[in-house]
Design a protein around this nucleic acid. Sequence first.
DNA 1: CTATTTTTGACAAAAATTGTCAACAGGCGA
DNA 2: TCGCCTGTTGACAATTTTTGTCAAAAATAG
Lengths: 104, 104
Amino acid sequence: MSKETIGDKLRKLREENELPLRKVAALLDIDVAILSKMERGERRLTKEIVQKLAKIYKHDTEELTVLYLSEKVVYEIGNEDLALKALHVAEEQIKYLTKLNKKK
Amino acid sequence: MSKETIGDKLRKLREENELPLRKVAALLDIDVAILSKMERGERRLTKEIVQKLAKIYKHDTEELTVLYLSEKVVYEIGNEDLALKALHVAEEQIKYLTKLNKKK
DNA sequence: CTATTTTTGACAAAAATTGTCAACAGGCGA
DNA sequence: TCGCCTGTTGACAATTTTTGTCAAAAATAG
């Protein structure tokens, strides 16, 4: 059960769609070099780009967004021995916050 | 069940210890203005500072660190409707990563 | 070999973070 | 009131991080 990064996944999707970096980069209006680096995890992705890519590749946007966000979280607190505890606390806070939002 | 920020908590602890910003800032070797802003959430805390403060206030370091980390997470992905899903995926990844670390 | 695609690194531009400082406001006791 | 202490605020520069652009090199396909 090895973990695939979102970069790997995006590359796979691009290859499945047989699109060169050049074309996708044009659609995103960014430089090829940047897209190449994003796929290899050398440059950060943004939520907007991930979601545009999901559309381009006709792939589930939610799945990719979740993967993107979770990777961001791991990047922020990963390798901390307290990471799991922190995640649980964060979960509580988010539940609380979304409850608040519903009430408004 | 309202949520207390780590800044609020740090301020409370400081007041309980009856220490002025001036003294604590000196111990941390930072400017008073910065510490003031950190307590009010206007400037970012760092893990290092949080842990130094825990020592100064003789308070559980782990508790404060977890609070610090969880706030960071919420800041990064909070208010996303996919936030909870992302947290669960992140949890899986972290469990996987820490398992790897143990094996080495 | 040639053409296309991808990678890499250097560099500048832009943005975000951080540190420093001085002025200001409020409380409090002399 | 005055002086002193504490905390707040905003402006500004310094620093660090992120981002965009480009060209050359490397890899791949035909």
